[in-house]
Simulated assay, not measured.
Amino acid sequence: MTAIAIVDDDELVRRALSRLVSSLSFQAIAYSSAEAFLLEVKDRLPFAALIDLHLPGMTGLELLEELRRRNIQLRVIVITGSEQEGTRARCLQAGAAVFLNKPVSRDALGDAIGPLGELTP
């Protein structure tokens, strides 16, 4: 089963997104921080990652930049509950494939992940 990583510091959001990802027939792997995700990503490279923009410690944008610096190729979907001006553009410029506002609907997430055969990171 294809894995989708979820990086969000809010346990309730991680659980909700995990259920959403599972409902789309993907395996959800949840992380409470960017740092925890980075510890495992090379050994357990998911197809895609849902990354919360506002994480404590390393932010979602910083994580996105670190993935690029490490040349880790995966589809990144940035999610946020509070978008600030220019944030969407900075995330897309840093390599995010999609930028979504919370709450994320099943349809929006399905569209963001897309059919596996048609996607490139």
Rank of each mutant, 00 (worst) to 15 (best):
A3I: 09
I4M: 09
A5S: 12
A5Y: 12
A5W: 15
V7Y: 07
V7I: 15
D8I: 05
D9Q: 08
D10S: 01
L12G: 07
V13L: 02
V13R: 04
R15K: 13
A16R: 12
A16Q: 09
L17N: 03
S18G: 11
R19Y: 12
L20I: 01
L20V: 02
V21F: 11
S22Y: 01
S23A: 13
L24S: 02
L24R: 04
L24K: 01
L24P: 09
S25H: 13
S25W: 12
F26E: 05
Q27L: 13
I29F: 09
I29Q: 15
A30Q: 02
A30C: 13
A30K: 06
S33A: 02
E35H: 00
E35N: 07
E35A: 06
F37M: 02
F37E: 02
L38D: 06
L38W: 01
L38Q: 05
E40G: 04
E40D: 15
K42G: 00
D43Y: 06
D43L: 11
D43R: 15
R44H: 09
L45A: 05
P46S: 09
F47H: 13
A49L: 03
A49Y: 06
A49F: 00
L50S: 09
L50W: 09
L50I: 15
I51A: 05
I51E: 08
I51F: 07
D52T: 11
G57E: 03
T59F: 08
E62S: 10
L63K: 02
L63F: 10
E65G: 04
E66W: 05
L67A: 12
R68Q: 06
R69E: 13
R69Y: 08
R69F: 08
R70F: 02
N71K: 15
R75S: 12
V76L: 04
V78N: 09
V78T: 07
I79A: 01
I79K: 00
I79H: 01
T80S: 01
T80N: 00
G81I: 12
S82H: 14
E83S: 14
E83V: 08
Q84W: 05
E85T: 08
G86E: 11
G86P: 09
G86R: 04
T87I: 13
A89C: 02
A89T: 11
C91D: 01
C91H: 09
L92M: 07
Q93Y: 03
A94G: 12
A94R: 08
G95C: 06
A96Y: 07
A96V: 10
A97C: 07
A97S: 14
F99E: 09
L100C: 04
L100I: 11
L100H: 06
N101H: 04
K102I: 03
P103E: 06
P103H: 05
V104P: 02
R106M: 03
R106G: 03
D107L: 12
D107Q: 14
A108V: 11
A108P: 00
G110Q: 10
A112K: 06
I113V: 06
G114L: 05
G114T: 05
P115D: 14
L116R: 14
L116E: 13
L116C: 10
L116H: 12
G117L: 01
E118R: 10
E118Q: 15
L119E: 13
T120R: 15
P121Q: 11
